[in-house]
């Protein structure tokens, strides 16, 4: 889509720019990092990997939360953002993130300090907060009725699956680099990767039937100015290459597949996730007013 002339503003499909152009890119990164961090923490709980939990905590709060703060026009007033959880998803998200950070810090601390302690209740609570952190941004966006590309219940699910898939990938990378066996986490990857592809496809298909603006947004992504990002970044780098590596690892044996190949697939998967989020942010259109 070529840049709109000022007289075409809201008389034609008008792109959402505030959360993707210039400093708005920080929101795109914030959503990616918070969900990736929460996904990594979630998967690490299941695999009892304290390093993964610690890394997930840092990615979520420092990179994700930090990007959120940097994007704000008045970051010193961010403490006010917890004031309206009854109606605002940003308020709810900040509360989820704060509790994730506080309870997660306790859990990491106890896991390192007393590895034999039974932390089942804490694990369950943290799993819930990981899901809430990973899903809230999708809900926050799907609440925007004015943008049909976002206004669907499948967006939060897509983001949740993407967060878990990214987290599982990162944990696979951590295991590869630290010499931990990868068979079990590889099973997660085998389930999450096709799930991610399926949910993404369902999401895009569902938007096409929502409205003409939704259809135009999807067309912009799959055959318009974002098509290069979508096919190269999401489909080829983010899905085809990791799927090829996974299929190869099934046909031989996970242990026979070299670490560099797995690590390359992980990096490609994360690039695909990031590009998918870019396309969803950039492809958002408002319906013309007249």
């Amino acid at each position: 889509m070529s840049r709109l002339m000022s007289y075409e503003w809201m008389t034609k499909y008008t792109p959402q720019e505030e959360w993707i152009e210039g400093g708005g890119k920080l929101i795109w990164l914030a959503l990616f990092f918070t969900e990736l961090g929460a996904g990594l923490f979630f998967v690490s709980i299941f695999f009892k990997n304290p390093l993964g939990m610690l890394l997930g905590w840092f990615i979520c709060l420092l990179l994700g939360g930090g990007s959120f703060l940097l994007h704000m026009g008045k970051p010193l007033r961010s403490f006010r953002s917890i004031l309206k959880p009854q109606t605002s998803w940003i308020s709810r998200g900040v509360i989820f993130l704060t509790l994730f950070g506080a309870i997660g810090a306790v859990e990491i601390f106890l896991t390192y300090l007393a590895p034999n302690l039974d932390l089942l209740l804490l694990h369950v609570v943290m799993c819930i907060f990981c899901i809430l952190v990973a899903i809230y941004a999708g809900i926050l966006m799907s609440y925007v009725r004015a943008i049909p590309l976002w206004d669907t219940g499948l967006l939060p699910i897509t983001y949740l699956v993407a967060g878990l898939w990214g987290g599982a990938e990162l944990l696979l990378g951590i295991n590869l680099l630290t010499g931990v066996p990868i068979e079990r986490i590889e099973l997660w990857i085998k389930v999450l990767l096709p799930s991610f592809a399926l949910v993404l496809a369902l999401y895009l298909i569902s938007v096409t039937s929502s409205s003409t603006t939704g259809l135009t947004s999807v067309k912009r992504i799959v055959s318009g100015d974002l098509a290069i990002h979508f096919y190269l970044g999401v489909v080829i780098i983010g899905l085809v290459f990791p799927v090829t590596v996974v299929v190869y690892s099934i046909s031989v044996s996970a242990t026979l597949v070299g670490s560099p190949l797995f690590l390359a697939a992980i990096v490609c998967g994360l690039i695909g996730d990031l590009t998918m989020r870019y396309c969803i942010m950039k492809g958002a259109l408002y319906s013309p007013l007249i």
Partner: peptide, 22 residues
């Protein structure tokens, strides 16, 4: 004095009648 500049209102307004003062 209370606005923290998250611009969620700007995104959410279907009529696009809000502007960030940058």
């Amino acid at each position: 004095d209370k606005c923290m500049g998250c611009r969620y209102c700007l995104i959410a307004c279907p009529y696009q009648q809000r502007t960030p003062y940058k």
